Amino acid sequence: MDAPRVRPAQFADGDALAGLDRETWSVLHAVQPRPEPPYKPFFDLSSSPADHLVAEGGDGTLLGYLRMTPATPLACNAHVRQINGLAVADSARGKGIGRALLHAAFDEARRQGARRITLRVLGHNAPARALYLSEGFAVEGVLRGEFLLDGAYVDDVLMARPL
Rank of each mutant, 00 (worst) to 15 (best):
A3N: 11
R5P: 01
R5E: 11
R5N: 09
R7G: 08
R7Q: 09
P8E: 08
A9F: 06
F11N: 09
F11D: 14
D13E: 09
D15L: 13
D15R: 11
L17F: 01
L17V: 02
L17T: 02
A18I: 00
G19F: 00
L20E: 05
R22L: 10
E23H: 07
E23T: 01
T24R: 01
T24M: 00
S26F: 04
H29M: 04
V31C: 07
V31L: 05
V31R: 10
P33D: 12
E36R: 13
P37Q: 05
Y39F: 15
K40I: 02
K40N: 09
P41H: 01
F43T: 04
F43H: 01
D44M: 00
D44T: 03
D44L: 04
L45F: 04
S46L: 06
S46W: 05
S46T: 13
S47M: 12
S48P: 00
D51E: 09
D51K: 04
L53F: 01
L53S: 05
V54D: 04
A55P: 05
G57N: 06
G57Y: 02
G58D: 12
D59F: 01
L62N: 06
L62H: 10
G64A: 02
Y65E: 11
Y65D: 06
M68Y: 05
T69L: 13
T69E: 12
P70Y: 00
P73W: 07
P73G: 09
L74A: 11
L74S: 02
A75E: 12
C76H: 09
N77K: 08
A78P: 00
H79E: 08
H79S: 07
Q82N: 11
I83K: 00
N84I: 03
N84Y: 06
N84H: 10
G85R: 09
L86T: 09
A87S: 15
V88S: 04
V88H: 06
V88E: 09
D90S: 13
D90F: 00
D90A: 14
A92H: 04
G94V: 08
G94S: 09
K95G: 03
G96Q: 11
G98A: 14
R99N: 11
R99A: 14
R99E: 15
A100T: 06
A100Y: 04
L101S: 08
L102G: 04
L102K: 03
A104L: 07
A104H: 06
F106V: 12
F106L: 12
F106D: 14
D107P: 01
E108M: 10
A109K: 06
R110K: 15
R111S: 13
R111N: 11
G113A: 10
A114Q: 07
I117T: 13
I117P: 07
I117N: 04
T118G: 00
T118M: 15
R120T: 13
R120H: 14
G123E: 10
H124C: 03
N125S: 04
P127G: 05
A128K: 08
A128H: 05
R129V: 08
R129E: 11
L131H: 10
Y132D: 06
Y132G: 05
L133C: 03
G136D: 12
G136P: 12
G136M: 12
F137W: 09
F137Q: 08
A138L: 14
A138V: 15
E140T: 13
R144H: 14
D150K: 08
D150Q: 13
Y153R: 15
Y153T: 01
Y153E: 13
V154C: 10
D155P: 05
V157P: 03
M159F: 02
R161G: 02
R161I: 00
L163H: 02
